[in-house]
Design a protein around this nucleic acid. Structure first.
Length: 826
RNA sequence: GCCGGAGUGGCGGAACGGUAGACGCAGGGGACUUAAAAUCCUUGAGCCGAAAGGCUGUCCGGGUUCGAAUCCCGGCUCCGGCACCA
């Protein structure tokens, strides 16, 4: 039967029809209080750029939406919200570029994004959205700041911070990529400034430990572990010669203490002033100036030739009791460890280069065990090194030239040295983290004002909770200032305020907070958006959180995902949440590339989804995006491939209409029934594993099978296909389900098909027969046939016989129903 | 340099240690059509062969195994992240 030409698959009309119906009937808006099997399906909310929805956004969302729809078909009450991460430097820079005020620009972008998103067929609950620039939202962002402030976790301190001279603001460490600004690629400078910090380092150990039990993509966990960067070692005090404080250093190699022949401080180190001798002062100052002028790219590229100057001061090596010179050099960074090192040139590459450059002594103190025999005694120094630092570090090393510790293994030596230092009060075991406190101040306009008032009498005073939100005023000139003064500092009406504590005239904080604070808690807000008077409704929060499944890009592995874990931990500790980890499961998705290259605006190869959706329909485009590669690894977008999905869906349409026309029930026993069960099994397992490409392949195979040689499938043969396709092509499935005569939406009711394990396998199986591991024949045997039977049948095969010949069969490998391998002598 | 991940047809990609190349795209051949598009059938790693069949083949070199794309050792290349981290 030819389908009526007027009734061919027309995605445009079908999609419009179902989108309208879903919206009207509230299909995707679960009753957040009443439902019984809550499942919070989260995806990373987008930054609403002026360019509109990017195909990368759509790729991310579609993969997450499929998972949510699948859980819904399995009978869970899925809550799938979306929102807009609309504050931040990114938006602001764009506003500056096009010279439109962000307060005009951003609402327009959000409107545009909303329109685009509604067209993509996501299962969004539009009744619970979040917009970070809405005072009704950022009121609570400010509230969170105050919670941290009261808990002593938000502190103002002077610290070396990353300064972007182009964006004219400080950046968090995580926003500095290879020494450059994440946003504008300008080399970042370091400045010592007073800023607001969240003390995330206090939580470093817990953030690290919890990773052990979180069900997250392994690569994301690894990225976080590396970022937190825990190192175990010791803190050692080197007393200054002729001066009071000691220089503290952190080292992971306390076993090499006897080899520390000089020390190096970061040029910014506070002790430098005290140390610098009269003769050296001018040179030291010149070097510090030069360092200050270097940007991070220059400073961090790791030159082989080291620079530095001698301060004129000496410190005492507590192990050797020798006075060793103290230098400053820019290869020592103020923002790691204590900003000072003990230099062990024999066992550290950088120290070796430095010592070589400036003719400082190099004393080896560890040696691989097997080399000890080459040397006369354990005080040996000459000939141990071979022109470079010996930096191996294993348990098979012994200490040499280390006084009473000589002869001990490296681990025993390290332990002994630390114990000995501890007795003298000169050192202790310690742990150091690479993670820094989170700098949240931004000297910019487009963010939530930090809710603090500075009073000459009372100091920093938090804005009383009932005065929140501190509304971001409309400031016509919102551009940043060349001296790092925030735009709000130019708005007197904004900053002039009375101190809430003493009533005297005071001044508001004029910095705004980092965008990452906005996104550190947005998911917590979703279920509670209908409450104005509290950030998190207790009942809603208990019911819906923590998030059941979070799917997003790996680019946020260390930024957003770490900050939101930290925020959740703090809110848990303060009694606002009952859990300390926000996302029980996290899965990263891969990167979508374009014909082998990364998509980027500068390359001009960015795919705008609108045209494709217009031409092929959202369902086809969604399915294509999921078909082009393994979701967790990403894929290559090529226009050509879309037609494969288009044809498949057309065949699907035709098959269902034919089935409706013939109206036959039942599933044909035998091959078709077996394939149906196998398909259900595979598609179910594939979706669970986010292997969407193979799930679609399995569905295609099944459709091909039930339409073999023009066969018209039965209703019961196409029903499971419609259902299993529904997560990928929700509109099409709704339409076809409707045409089968159902009154309900595909997504209402528990409809995901089950398979019968009994029906997975056929009565006879095709079995490959190998001779000496090489395929020689394929025979048909009864399922579960015994080795003897199979072997006899195999030997009856002419080709097998030819290869076996007269040789003796030495071994028979029989994997029932899978394979037979005859090992013959020959 | 360090930490991840990956190298399979013309292309995107499939393969619990068990028939390598599922599914799809592009290509060849054919049907339908006045024609084209669409659709349908068919073919499809390379080499030899009329065929049956044989040989080679999953980045390279070794190894384990009855059997390796898959596991182990060594190397190369590409992608992503981090990087003077003491």
């Amino acid at each position: 039967m030819q389908p009526d030409s007027r009734d061919s698959y027309d995605p445009r009309s079908i999609e419009a029809k179902w989108q309208e119906r879903w919206a009207r009937q509230g299909t995707n808006e679960p009753d957040l209080d009443a439902v019984e099997r809550p499942f919070f399906n989260l995806m990373m909310f987008p930054y609403p750029s002026a360019e509109g929805l990017h195909v990368g956004n759509l790729y991310a969302f579609t993969g997450a939406d499929i998972y949510g729809r699948y859980q819904r078909l399995r009978g869970l009450d899925v809550f799938e919200p979306i929102g807009f991460d609309a504050f931040g430097i990114h938006s602001e820079n764009y506003a500056i570029k096009v010279d439109v005020h962000p307060m005009e620009l951003i609402p327009r972008n959000i409107e545009n994004f909303t329109r685009q998103l509604r067209r993509t067929g996501m299962m969004y609950d539009w009744a619970h959205t979040v917009d970070t620039t809405d005072p009704a939202y950022y009121r609570w962002t400010q509230w969170i700041f105050l919670q941290l402030y009261e808990a002593g976790l938000a502190v103002r301190k002077e610290a070396p911070v990353n300064w972007c001279p182009s964006c004219q603001t400080v950046l968090a460490n995580e926003q500095v990529i290879a020494g450059r600004c994440e946003r504008c690629d300008t080399p970042v400078e370091q400045k010592l400034l007073s800023q607001w910090f969240f003390r995330i380092t206090e939580y470093a150990q817990r953030l690290l430990e919890n990773l052990d039990w979180l069900d997250w993509s392994e690569s994301t966990k690894t990225a976080q572990r590396n970022w937190i960067g825990r190192s175990e070692g010791a803190t050692i005090h080197f007393p200054l010669v002729g001066s009071e404080p000691a220089i503290e250093v952190f080292t992971t190699r306390p076993d090499t203490l006897f080899g520390a022949t000089f020390m190096v401080l970061a040029p910014e180190h506070p002790l430098v002033d005290r140390l610098a001798g009269e003769a050296e002062r001018a040179e030291v100052e010149a070097y510090r100036d030069a360092t200050r002028r270097k940007d991070l790219v220059e400073r961090r590229k790791g030159d082989k030739t080291k620079s530095g100057v001698f301060t004129g001061g000496y410190a005492r090596n507590p192990a050797t009791d020798e006075d060793i010179p103290v230098w400053i050099a820019d290869y020592v960074l103020m923002d790691y460890g204590t900003g000072a090192i003990m230099a062990v040139p024999a066992h550290d590459e950088r120290d070796f280069e430095f010592a070589t450059e400036f003719g400082l002594p190099i004393v080896p103190v560890v040696l691989p065990f097997e080399r000890t025999e080459e040397f006369e005694n354990l005080s040996q120094v000459d000939g141990v090194l071979e022109g470079e630092a010996y930096i191996e570090h294993s348990d098979d090393e012994v200490l040499i030239n280390s006084g009473r510790f000589s002869g001990l293994s490296a681990p025993a030596g390290a332990a002994g040295i630390i114990e000995w230092l501890a007795e003298k009060g000169l050192g202790e075991v310690s742990v150091n983290y690479r993670l820094h406190d989170w700098c949240i101040s931004r000297q910019r306009y487009w963010g939530p004002p930090i809710p603090i008032i500075h009073c000459d009498e009372c100091g920093a005073v938090p804005v009383p909770e009932q005065d929140l939100p501190v509304v971001l005023p409309y400031v016509a000139d919102f551009r940043p200032d060349a001296h790092g003064v925030a735009p709000l500092a130019r708005d007197e009406e904004f900053y002039r305020v009375d101190c809430p504590r003493c009533g005297r005239q005071a001044r508001r904080e004029t910095d705004v907070s980092d965008t990452f604070l906005d996104s550190a808690w947005y998911f917590l807000r979703y279920p509670s958006t209908d409450f104005d008077d509290r950030p998190l409704d207790e009942g809603r929060t208990r019911k819906w959180l923590p998030v059941d499944m979070y799917i997003g890009g790996e680019e946020h592995a260390v930024l957003h995902l770490l900050y939101s874990r930290f925020t959740t931990m703090v809110l848990n500790e303060l009694g606002h949440l009952e859990f300390e980890e926000p996302y029980e499961r996290f899965r990263k998705h891969g990167l979508l590339i374009r014909e082998g290259a990364k998509m980027s605006k500068s390359k001009g190869n960015v795919v705008i989804p609108d045209d494709y959706i217009e031409r092929y329909g959202a369902d086809t485009f969604r399915a294509y995006l999921m078909f082009l590669g393994p979701y967790q690894e990403g894929g290559d977008f090529r226009d050509r491939g879309i037609v494969g999905i288009e044809r498949f869906l057309n065949r699907m349409w035709e098959a269902v209409l034919q089935a409706v026309g013939e109206s036959r029930n039942g599933v044909e026993a035998g091959d078709i029934e077996r394939r149906l069960n196998a398909t259900i099994k595979q598609v179910t397992e594939d979706i669970e594993a986010l292997s969407y490409n193979t799930a679609l392949a399995a569905l295609m195979e099944y459709l091909n099978a039930i339409r073999y040689e023009g066969r018209v499938p039965s209703l019961d043969e196409v029903k499971p296909l419609i259902l299993m396709l529904a997560p990928f092509t929700p509109h099409l499935s709704e339409e076809l389900w409707d045409r089968l005569g159902s009154d309900l939406s595909v997504f209402e009711g528990v409809l995901w098909p089950e398979y019968d394990p009994q029906k997975l396998r056929a009565e006879v199986v095709e079995m490959p027969v190998q001779v000496n591991g090489r395929l020689r024949a394929t025979i048909t045997v009864d399922r579960g046939a015994a080795t003897d039977t199979v072997q006899a049948q195999a030997l009856a095969d002419e080709n097998v016989q030819r290869h076996v010949g007269d040789a003796t069969i030495r071994k028979v490998v029989h994997v029932p129903d899978r394979l037979l391998n005859l090992v013959v002598q020959g």
